[in-house]
Design a protein around this nucleic acid. Structure first.
Lengths: 129, 129
DNA sequence: ATCATCTGCTAAGTATATCAAGCAGTCAAG
DNA sequence: CTTGACTGCTTGATATACTTAGCAGATGAT
Protein backbone atom coordinates (compact mmCIF):
# COMPACT_ATOMS: atom_id res chain seq x y z
CA UNK A 1 0.00 0.00 0.00
CA UNK A 2 2.99 2.19 0.18
CA UNK A 3 3.30 2.48 -3.55
CA UNK A 4 -0.07 1.32 -4.67
CA UNK A 5 -1.00 4.59 -6.23
CA UNK A 6 -1.37 3.92 -9.92
CA UNK A 7 -1.90 7.55 -10.74
CA UNK A 8 1.60 8.34 -9.82
CA UNK A 9 3.37 5.28 -11.13
CA UNK A 10 2.15 5.78 -14.69
CA UNK A 11 3.42 2.46 -15.83
CA UNK A 12 3.95 2.56 -19.55
CA UNK A 13 2.37 0.04 -21.83
CA UNK A 14 4.58 -2.43 -23.60
CA UNK A 15 4.24 -0.52 -26.84
CA UNK A 16 5.08 2.79 -25.28
CA UNK A 17 8.09 1.32 -23.60
CA UNK A 18 9.36 -0.38 -26.75
CA UNK A 19 8.92 2.79 -28.75
CA UNK A 20 10.79 4.84 -26.19
CA UNK A 21 13.67 2.44 -26.02
CA UNK A 22 13.99 2.23 -29.77
CA UNK A 23 13.86 5.97 -30.20
CA UNK A 24 16.45 6.35 -27.52
CA UNK A 25 18.76 3.98 -29.29
CA UNK A 26 18.10 5.76 -32.54
CA UNK A 27 17.25 2.64 -34.43
CA UNK A 28 14.75 2.35 -37.23
CA UNK A 29 12.14 -0.38 -37.37
CA UNK A 30 14.07 -2.14 -40.10
CA UNK A 31 17.32 -1.88 -38.22
CA UNK A 32 15.75 -3.69 -35.32
CA UNK A 33 14.37 -6.28 -37.69
CA UNK A 34 17.86 -6.92 -39.00
CA UNK A 35 19.38 -6.95 -35.55
CA UNK A 36 16.87 -9.60 -34.55
CA UNK A 37 17.95 -11.76 -37.47
CA UNK A 38 14.45 -11.83 -38.86
CA UNK A 39 12.78 -12.92 -35.66
CA UNK A 40 10.72 -9.74 -35.67
CA UNK A 41 9.48 -7.98 -38.77
CA UNK A 42 9.44 -4.22 -38.93
CA UNK A 43 5.72 -4.27 -39.55
CA UNK A 44 5.09 -6.33 -36.48
CA UNK A 45 7.30 -4.10 -34.41
CA UNK A 46 5.18 -1.16 -35.44
CA UNK A 47 2.06 -2.98 -34.32
CA UNK A 48 3.73 -3.86 -31.06
CA UNK A 49 4.63 -0.25 -30.39
CA UNK A 50 1.07 0.78 -31.03
CA UNK A 51 -0.28 -1.82 -28.63
CA UNK A 52 -2.12 -3.66 -31.37
CA UNK A 53 -0.88 -7.00 -30.08
CA UNK A 54 -2.30 -8.25 -26.83
CA UNK A 55 -0.23 -11.38 -26.35
CA UNK A 56 3.09 -11.33 -28.16
CA UNK A 57 5.18 -14.45 -28.13
CA UNK A 58 7.97 -14.59 -25.56
CA UNK A 59 10.31 -15.40 -28.41
CA UNK A 60 9.71 -11.98 -29.84
CA UNK A 61 10.12 -10.30 -26.50
CA UNK A 62 13.32 -12.14 -25.82
CA UNK A 63 14.81 -11.12 -29.14
CA UNK A 64 13.86 -7.51 -28.51
CA UNK A 65 15.27 -7.63 -25.01
CA UNK A 66 18.58 -8.77 -26.44
CA UNK A 67 18.72 -6.12 -29.11
CA UNK A 68 17.64 -3.33 -26.81
CA UNK A 69 19.73 -4.57 -23.89
CA UNK A 70 16.83 -4.37 -21.50
CA UNK A 71 15.89 -7.11 -19.04
CA UNK A 72 13.71 -9.80 -20.48
CA UNK A 73 11.63 -9.84 -17.30
CA UNK A 74 10.63 -6.24 -17.80
CA UNK A 75 9.17 -6.92 -21.22
CA UNK A 76 7.46 -10.04 -19.96
CA UNK A 77 5.94 -8.07 -17.12
CA UNK A 78 4.73 -5.29 -19.39
CA UNK A 79 3.25 -7.88 -21.74
CA UNK A 80 1.12 -9.06 -18.87
CA UNK A 81 3.01 -12.27 -18.27
CA UNK A 82 3.38 -11.46 -14.64
CA UNK A 83 6.25 -13.47 -13.34
CA UNK A 84 5.80 -12.84 -9.70
CA UNK A 85 8.27 -15.54 -8.75
CA UNK A 86 11.23 -14.01 -10.52
CA UNK A 87 10.34 -10.43 -11.15
CA UNK A 88 12.21 -7.67 -9.37
CA UNK A 89 10.24 -5.48 -7.05
CA UNK A 90 8.67 -2.61 -8.86
CA UNK A 91 7.18 -0.95 -5.89
CA UNK A 92 9.44 1.33 -3.97
CA UNK A 93 12.70 -0.20 -4.98
CA UNK A 94 15.41 2.33 -5.28
CA UNK A 95 17.44 0.34 -7.70
CA UNK A 96 16.67 -0.66 -11.22
CA UNK A 97 19.55 -2.40 -12.85
CA UNK A 98 18.30 -1.24 -16.19
CA UNK A 99 21.24 -0.13 -18.27
CA UNK A 100 19.03 1.58 -20.74
CA UNK A 101 21.00 4.74 -20.56
CA UNK A 102 24.16 4.08 -22.40
CA UNK A 103 25.92 7.20 -21.40
CA UNK A 104 28.39 6.96 -24.22
CA UNK A 105 25.39 7.35 -26.42
CA UNK A 106 24.27 10.53 -24.78
CA UNK A 107 25.40 13.89 -25.93
CA UNK A 108 26.48 16.34 -23.28
CA UNK A 109 23.42 18.36 -24.03
CA UNK A 110 21.12 15.43 -23.57
CA UNK A 111 22.84 14.36 -20.41
CA UNK A 112 22.43 17.77 -18.89
CA UNK A 113 18.83 17.96 -19.95
CA UNK A 114 18.10 14.58 -18.45
CA UNK A 115 19.86 15.45 -15.24
CA UNK A 116 17.87 18.59 -14.97
CA UNK A 117 14.67 16.73 -15.64
CA UNK A 118 15.54 14.08 -13.10
CA UNK A 119 16.24 16.74 -10.54
CA UNK A 120 12.89 18.24 -11.32
CA UNK A 121 11.18 14.89 -10.88
CA UNK A 122 12.77 14.25 -7.55
CA UNK A 123 12.15 17.70 -6.22
CA UNK A 124 8.51 17.17 -6.95
CA UNK A 125 8.32 13.92 -5.12
CA UNK A 126 10.16 15.09 -2.09
CA UNK A 127 12.32 12.51 -0.44
CA UNK A 128 11.07 9.48 -2.24
CA UNK A 129 8.85 6.92 -0.57
CA UNK B 1 19.61 -27.70 -12.27
CA UNK B 2 16.51 -29.79 -12.38
CA UNK B 3 16.44 -29.78 -8.65
CA UNK B 4 12.70 -30.08 -8.65
CA UNK B 5 12.13 -33.31 -10.44
CA UNK B 6 11.90 -35.75 -7.60
CA UNK B 7 12.68 -38.94 -9.40
CA UNK B 8 13.19 -38.61 -13.08
CA UNK B 9 15.83 -36.20 -14.21
CA UNK B 10 15.38 -37.30 -17.78
CA UNK B 11 14.82 -34.35 -20.02
CA UNK B 12 11.24 -34.83 -21.03
CA UNK B 13 9.13 -32.72 -23.29
CA UNK B 14 6.58 -30.27 -22.00
CA UNK B 15 3.78 -32.64 -22.91
CA UNK B 16 5.31 -35.61 -21.16
CA UNK B 17 6.03 -33.51 -18.14
CA UNK B 18 2.49 -32.18 -17.95
CA UNK B 19 1.01 -35.63 -18.41
CA UNK B 20 3.32 -37.01 -15.80
CA UNK B 21 2.38 -34.41 -13.26
CA UNK B 22 -1.32 -34.74 -13.90
CA UNK B 23 -1.22 -38.51 -13.63
CA UNK B 24 0.72 -38.25 -10.43
CA UNK B 25 -1.89 -35.96 -8.98
CA UNK B 26 -4.62 -38.29 -10.26
CA UNK B 27 -6.57 -35.54 -11.90
CA UNK B 28 -8.65 -35.88 -15.01
CA UNK B 29 -8.39 -33.48 -17.92
CA UNK B 30 -11.70 -31.94 -16.99
CA UNK B 31 -10.73 -31.61 -13.38
CA UNK B 32 -7.74 -29.56 -14.42
CA UNK B 33 -9.95 -27.48 -16.67
CA UNK B 34 -12.19 -26.69 -13.75
CA UNK B 35 -9.30 -26.01 -11.42
CA UNK B 36 -7.96 -23.52 -13.94
CA UNK B 37 -11.29 -21.70 -13.91
CA UNK B 38 -11.70 -22.14 -17.64
CA UNK B 39 -8.30 -20.81 -18.60
CA UNK B 40 -7.42 -24.16 -20.13
CA UNK B 41 -9.85 -26.46 -21.88
CA UNK B 42 -9.58 -30.21 -21.49
CA UNK B 43 -9.22 -30.59 -25.23
CA UNK B 44 -6.33 -28.19 -25.32
CA UNK B 45 -4.68 -29.84 -22.37
CA UNK B 46 -4.80 -33.13 -24.21
CA UNK B 47 -3.07 -31.54 -27.19
CA UNK B 48 -0.52 -30.02 -24.90
CA UNK B 49 0.30 -33.37 -23.36
CA UNK B 50 0.75 -34.85 -26.80
CA UNK B 51 3.10 -32.06 -27.86
CA UNK B 52 0.76 -30.86 -30.57
CA UNK B 53 1.28 -27.27 -29.52
CA UNK B 54 4.62 -25.73 -30.27
CA UNK B 55 4.18 -22.36 -28.62
CA UNK B 56 1.59 -22.32 -25.83
CA UNK B 57 0.73 -19.02 -24.24
CA UNK B 58 2.46 -18.19 -20.96
CA UNK B 59 -0.98 -17.57 -19.51
CA UNK B 60 -1.84 -21.22 -19.98
CA UNK B 61 1.45 -22.33 -18.53
CA UNK B 62 1.03 -20.06 -15.56
CA UNK B 63 -2.42 -21.41 -14.78
CA UNK B 64 -1.16 -24.97 -15.06
CA UNK B 65 1.80 -24.20 -12.86
CA UNK B 66 -0.56 -22.95 -10.18
CA UNK B 67 -2.86 -25.93 -10.36
CA UNK B 68 -0.05 -28.44 -10.45
CA UNK B 69 2.01 -26.57 -7.89
CA UNK B 70 5.11 -26.71 -10.07
CA UNK B 71 7.41 -23.75 -10.75
CA UNK B 72 6.26 -21.54 -13.56
CA UNK B 73 9.81 -21.17 -14.78
CA UNK B 74 10.08 -24.90 -15.33
CA UNK B 75 7.14 -24.94 -17.69
CA UNK B 76 8.43 -21.87 -19.46
CA UNK B 77 11.77 -23.53 -19.93
CA UNK B 78 10.25 -26.75 -21.21
CA UNK B 79 8.11 -24.76 -23.61
CA UNK B 80 11.29 -23.45 -25.16
CA UNK B 81 11.06 -19.94 -23.78
CA UNK B 82 14.72 -19.73 -22.87
CA UNK B 83 16.16 -21.09 -19.73
CA UNK B 84 15.15 -19.55 -16.47
CA UNK B 85 18.55 -19.83 -14.90
CA UNK B 86 20.03 -17.67 -17.61
CA UNK B 87 19.78 -14.03 -16.94
CA UNK B 88 23.14 -12.48 -16.03
CA UNK B 89 24.29 -11.30 -19.38
CA UNK B 90 24.99 -7.64 -19.00
CA UNK B 91 28.65 -8.33 -18.70
CA UNK B 92 29.41 -7.85 -22.33
CA UNK B 93 30.86 -4.39 -22.23
CA UNK B 94 29.37 -2.00 -24.71
CA UNK B 95 28.01 0.17 -21.98
CA UNK B 96 29.12 -0.74 -18.57
CA UNK B 97 30.02 2.53 -17.03
CA UNK B 98 27.35 4.98 -16.24
CA UNK B 99 29.06 7.89 -14.66
CA UNK B 100 26.54 10.60 -14.19
CA UNK B 101 23.43 8.53 -14.22
CA UNK B 102 23.81 6.09 -11.46
CA UNK B 103 21.19 3.82 -12.88
CA UNK B 104 21.26 1.74 -9.79
CA UNK B 105 19.75 4.70 -8.11
CA UNK B 106 16.89 5.10 -10.51
CA UNK B 107 13.49 3.80 -9.71
CA UNK B 108 11.52 2.13 -12.44
CA UNK B 109 9.23 5.11 -12.61
CA UNK B 110 12.10 7.50 -12.98
CA UNK B 111 13.73 5.40 -15.62
CA UNK B 112 10.55 5.34 -17.65
CA UNK B 113 10.05 9.04 -17.24
CA UNK B 114 13.59 9.79 -18.35
CA UNK B 115 13.30 7.44 -21.29
CA UNK B 116 10.14 9.13 -22.38
CA UNK B 117 11.70 12.55 -22.02
CA UNK B 118 14.80 11.51 -23.93
CA UNK B 119 12.63 10.03 -26.67
CA UNK B 120 10.81 13.32 -26.81
CA UNK B 121 14.04 15.25 -27.05
CA UNK B 122 15.39 13.12 -29.85
CA UNK B 123 12.18 12.94 -31.78
CA UNK B 124 12.67 16.68 -32.11
CA UNK B 125 14.28 16.20 -35.47
CA UNK B 126 17.87 17.29 -35.87
CA UNK B 127 18.85 16.47 -32.34
CA UNK B 128 21.95 14.66 -33.49
CA UNK B 129 24.90 16.10 -35.30
C1' DA C 1 11.99 19.15 -61.51
C1' DT C 2 13.08 13.62 -61.12
C1' DC C 3 15.13 9.87 -59.03
C1' DA C 4 16.75 7.29 -54.91
C1' DT C 5 16.50 5.89 -50.39
C1' DC C 6 15.16 6.33 -46.20
C1' DT C 7 11.29 6.66 -42.54
C1' DG C 8 6.89 4.69 -40.15
C1' DC C 9 2.74 2.51 -41.11
C1' DT C 10 -1.21 -0.39 -42.97
C1' DA C 11 -3.81 -3.94 -45.58
C1' DA C 12 -4.20 -8.62 -46.74
C1' DG C 13 -2.74 -13.02 -46.30
C1' DT C 14 -0.97 -17.26 -43.77
C1' DA C 15 -0.08 -19.92 -39.74
C1' DT C 16 -1.40 -21.46 -35.42
C1' DA C 17 -3.19 -21.27 -30.63
C1' DT C 18 -7.44 -22.19 -28.42
C1' DC C 19 -12.20 -23.66 -27.84
C1' DA C 20 -16.91 -26.04 -28.28
C1' DA C 21 -18.73 -30.07 -29.56
C1' DG C 22 -18.76 -34.64 -30.23
C1' DC C 23 -16.85 -39.55 -30.48
C1' DA C 24 -15.33 -44.16 -28.61
C1' DG C 25 -14.14 -46.73 -24.55
C1' DT C 26 -14.67 -48.18 -19.55
C1' DC C 27 -17.02 -49.21 -15.40
C1' DA C 28 -20.94 -49.42 -12.10
C1' DA C 29 -25.42 -49.77 -11.14
C1' DG C 30 -30.40 -50.92 -12.39
C1' DC D 1 -28.94 -56.14 -21.75
C1' DT D 2 -29.31 -50.66 -21.21
C1' DT D 3 -28.37 -46.33 -19.06
C1' DG D 4 -25.53 -42.97 -17.21
C1' DA D 5 -21.42 -40.89 -15.82
C1' DC D 6 -16.98 -41.04 -16.18
C1' DT D 7 -12.40 -41.27 -18.97
C1' DG D 8 -9.01 -39.47 -22.92
C1' DC D 9 -9.09 -37.79 -27.38
C1' DT D 10 -10.16 -35.75 -32.21
C1' DT D 11 -12.33 -32.53 -35.29
C1' DG D 12 -14.08 -28.33 -37.17
C1' DA D 13 -14.44 -23.48 -36.30
C1' DT D 14 -12.75 -19.00 -34.60
C1' DA D 15 -9.48 -15.67 -32.93
C1' DT D 16 -5.21 -13.70 -33.37
C1' DA D 17 -0.12 -13.64 -33.79
C1' DC D 18 2.85 -12.72 -37.42
C1' DT D 19 4.61 -11.86 -42.35
C1' DT D 20 4.98 -10.11 -47.03
C1' DA D 21 3.96 -6.48 -49.98
C1' DG D 22 2.98 -2.12 -50.53
C1' DC D 23 1.86 2.96 -49.62
C1' DA D 24 2.65 7.97 -48.47
C1' DG D 25 5.80 11.29 -46.63
C1' DA D 26 10.53 13.14 -45.86
C1' DT D 27 15.13 13.95 -47.25
C1' DG D 28 18.89 14.41 -50.33
C1' DA D 29 21.45 14.10 -54.70
C1' DT D 30 21.64 14.80 -59.67
Amino acid sequence: MTANTPEKSRAQSLGQYLANVRTTKRMSLREVEEACAGVVSNAYLSQLEHDKISKPSPNILHALAEVYAVPYATLMAKAGYITETQKPKQKSGRHAQVPTFATDDLTTEEEEALLEYLAFLRSRKGGGK
